[in-house]
Nucleic acid binder design. Structure first.
Lengths: 343, 343
DNA sequence: CATGTTTTTGACAGCGCTTTCAATAGACCA
DNA sequence: TGGTCTATTGAAAGCGCTGTCAAAAACATG
């Protein structure tokens, strides 16, 4: 039923080779013949069969993207960025999650189909060794997101967490004139939290501000937890030259809400800074000064790297580091007229 | 370089037919031979070539999902749900967005590859006719999300917006004892807003409450806009038996914030209800009573329908309607011990 | 006109797999 | 013993396409 290349050939009164040439290397065929073939293609509504094509060419122009989850602000931005860039580069994107059902199984499953995939970008949280094995076992071109896997070198795209946190700290001790900064992190073992904490500590030292272990809290990235913590401490924190630096926007929002509930005004009585620049950052009163993490760009860069590697499997591994950007809004009280001003 | 079926055949000292049978119809081959072949497969790390397979079988086990955008709470939930179910059903999912680059082009592009896709689920906002044409032109099995396309009947998955809004209204006039309900919708032309408004009006009539045109506002679904509107009106709205019914959680959050800023207490002085049950719903003080829209389930159902149609293109079109669920939290002041209680 | 060169075309051999179809070899029955 | 089954296997025909190679056609040159 579906129309094949030989149907077109018959109709245009040429051989299938000629049709194929029209499709792939037009310059090799006579203009008139070409026109005849093209109209036959149009009339029949012919679409080359991608399987047959792939069988010969040994490539599908499909690449995979494997994330821990597909839902949530970050992942969905990565998907968006990756998909967009993949398209530009002439590839289609298959997404998959390591969390759907059994953890690694689904990744394996995705990759088992590898003969259909030209390459894959993976973002992993744990099981790094096994994934490394699987990936190299299958000899499938791959790039790693936001993490590095031990062993053989490979392409990777990283977010320079440290740079972002440092930028924020500089802003707090500089333009905002903070003398005391409270750090509210996520889980103590979380890589991002660790990087941000280090930047925090370093910046404090650079600014010759005292570091106090009691100004550091480790929570769970949740609004509610931060709200509860802040409810207990805002009165103590309240001071024009005190800022709370939360490791994500949700916690920052919780802190702002707790301050407001306690009758304090942000940033007059207390500065609050967030991280990530998610939607919530604009949904607090006042809106949050935060750090924009270029997730969508990370997805895009990953696709660039991946497609390049697919094209040339021998090229030396590249490592791209993306710099987060400071977004100054009102929650820390600094002047809003700087170059980063963002309503 | 890659190992093919004939490598396995040679190694196991059988013909390729036998290897193929071991792969697909094990029961047809002798146990001993089978074992020999299997160990050859293992030793060689053989993976069947998906192209060759697809060429014969005429199916890829890949289905597509085309959304207006890939980012945002809803879309990402749809993707998650769809991906999960697709996997369960033995399919892989390719996602694509109509907004990346030129609107319809990217959809077309995705579908042009259709020989690789067994089917596609599309969610459209506008250009319904053209998509319908494209889809039927390509004779590709498809299902439509959250909308219906004129013309030939087809599978579709819808959200029963009306049902959700009605449930909320019943809750407000019943357990919450509201006598006056302010409606804050999105754009007046938006389908969801229209459906929700109709439910609002109907419920008001059923409860014999007066309807006042001046209690209806049309905004743009944004936090900020709602905050501004509410700042102007909260004092006028303030009354224990008055509720504001916002058409999404972000606007509801803006209203709560404005009320708090005005020194009012929600729900004591004013009830606020949201819609969608996004993350923000838990990020207001108090958390929002809202309506959970089963987006992830919509994605899952779409995949079920799609895969069924792929399996049997002749079956009559199905139309699934998903019911949103009322989520009672604290922002409307009703008793929290009902069956839907959700912290 | 013979010869060399370039352009344009068709025949055909795969790519790696599934799937008839036929062959072989026991097993069973009369 | 001959004949009919059944179980097991291999040979070979494609699936629709690309790409090589050689033939044919068109053109240019001496």
């Amino acid at each position: 039923m579906p129309v094949s290349i030989s149907d077109v050939a018959k109709r245009a009164n040429v051989s299938i080779s000629t049709v194929s040439r029209v499709l792939n290397r037009r310059e090799l065929v006579n203009d008139q013949t070409c026109a005849r073939v093209e109209s036959a293609i149009r009339e029949l509504g012919y679409q080359p069969n991608a399987f047959a094509r792939g069988l010969m060419l040994r490539k599908s122009e499909i690449v995979g993207l494997v994330l821990p989850d597909l839902h949530g602000e970050f992942y969905s931005q990565i998907i968006r960025g990756a998909n967009q860039r993949a398209r530009q580069l002439g590839y289609n994107l298959v997404v998959s999650s390591t969390r759907d059902g059994d953890d690694s199984h689904s990744l394996l499953h995705a990759i088992r189909q590898r003969t259909l995939l030209d390459g894959v970008a993976v973002m992993v949280s744990e099981l790094t060794d096994r994934i490394q094995d699987v990936l190299t076992d299958f000899r499938l071109p791959f790039v790693v997101l936001d993490d590095e896997i031990g062993g053989a070198p490979h392409d990777s795209v990283l977010i320079d967490q440290r740079h972002g946190a440092t930028a924020m700290m500089r802003h707090l001790v500089g333009p905002c004139g903070a003398k005391r900064i409270v750090f509210v992190g996520g889980l103590e073992t979380n890589f991002d939290t660790i990087a941000r904490f280090e930047a925090y500590r370093q910046a404090l030292a650079n600014a010759k501000l005292p570091f106090s272990r009691s100004d550091v809290y480790y929570l769970d990235y949740e609004y509610e937890t931060a709200y509860n913590l802040a409810s207990k401490h805002v009165r103590e924190w309240a001071a024009p030259d005190c800022c709370v630096f939360a490791a994500n926007d949700e916690m920052a929002a919780g802190i702002v809400a707790a301050a407001n509930a306690a009758g304090l005004s942000v940033p007059r009585d207390l500065g609050v800074a967030g991280f990530d620049d998610t939607r919530v950052a604009r949904m607090t009163r006042p809106p949050l000064t935060t750090v924009r993490v270029p997730m969508s760009e990370m997805g895009a860069k990953a696709m660039e790297l991946l497609c390049r590697r697919v094209a040339d499997p021998q090229r030396p591994p590249t490592r791209i580091s993306l710099k987060p950007e400071l977004i100054v809004r009102e929650s820390c009280g600094a002047d809003l007229c700087g170059p980063h001003r963002n309503r």
